[in-house]
């Protein structure tokens, strides 16, 4: 008899607590919740291969182009393993970069130099450095683990034809070139639409825009194009993606630094 009395009282109290909690969810908690949801939404692709054409454009409009093939291996409980193999420019053909991302810990990174047949471990401390002369820093292209940032939900707003969450995130890993980033992420499918990057002096540095999203395996969304503009230098970099293959048959052995010399 007594027990049911307690239950009767407990139910509304807990209900009030729950509602209160939801109402009291801080912008930080909401931002993190969205980041976790977005991460979950994209999980389970296991492996991915894709081809990328990277076009660098300077303020004078001069262009140079790189052709890169990428292979990604999803690692549960740790950052992904990524392999990038260069096809062009011809003088760096077969050069490869292998990265084991590790969330907050420094990544492991190896560079393969085909002319010397040398596999060289490189320092991944260079997160804010430009990737092959482009406007993309190493940290922009690396695996985006949830724990790499802290978050703050800002607002919801329309983003093109979609409705977006707008979230600010702050790098928690060392040696980032940014104080913060503001991201627009679509509420329905958690597709990243736009990211603004703010440099260490908190001045707006770059804007990255994603476009041409397509659905693969009836579930995973991938953009056809990523466009980065540097507001401070006027330089631009476009990544055109093609030939996405997810859950594809690639060997885990290809992500062994000792296998780099035979990979093409």
């Amino acid at each position: 008899m007594k027990k049911s009395w307690i239950l009767i009282w407990l139910l509304p109290i807990s209900l009030i607590c729950y509602v209160g909690n939801v109402l009291a969810e801080t912008p930080e908690e909401k931002g993190l919740a969205i980041a976790i949801a977005a991460d979950k939404r994209d999980a389970g692709f296991e492996t991915q291969t894709a081809e990328m054409v990277m076009t660098l454009r300077n303020r004078q409009g001069q262009e140079s182009t790189r052709y890169i093939r990428t292979r990604t291996l999803e690692v549960e409980g740790d950052g992904d393993k990524t392999l990038s193999i260069f096809d062009r420019p011809a003088d760096v053909k077969h050069t490869a970069v292998l990265t084991y991302s590790h969330g907050l810990e420094p990544d492991d990174q190896w560079l393969y130099l085909p002319a010397l047949k040398r596999v060289k471990r490189i320092n991944s401390r260079n997160k804010s450095g430009p990737f092959v002369g482009s406007e993309f820093a190493f940290e922009d292209l690396g695996s985006q683990e949830v724990e790499k940032y802290s978050y703050k939900y800002l607002r919801d707003e329309a983003c093109g034809e979609w409705e977006c969450h707008v979230i600010e995130r702050y790098p928690e890993y060392e040696y980032s070139g940014y104080t913060r980033q503001i991201g627009w992420i679509d509420k329905a499918e958690y597709r990243v639409v736009k990211i603004e990057f703010y440099d260490r002096k908190d001045a707006k540095l770059k804007t990255l825009t994603y476009s041409g999203y397509q659905e693969y395996l009836d579930y995973y969304w991938r953009p056809d194009e990523m466009f980065m503009v540097n507001h401070q230098t006027g330089k631009e970099t476009t990544l055109k993606w093609s030939n996405y293959k997810l859950k594809t048959d690639i060997s885990e052995r290809d992500f062994n630094p000792n296998a780099l010399p035979r990979l093409r």
């Binding site: 401390r125 260079n126 804010s128 450095g129 820093a137």
Partner: peptide, 12 residues
């Protein structure tokens, strides 16, 4: 020993 990003353009 590497000094990273010593110039505006990100030279090492």
């Amino acid at each position: 020993y590497t000094f990273y990003g010593i110039s505006e353009s990100g030279a090492d």
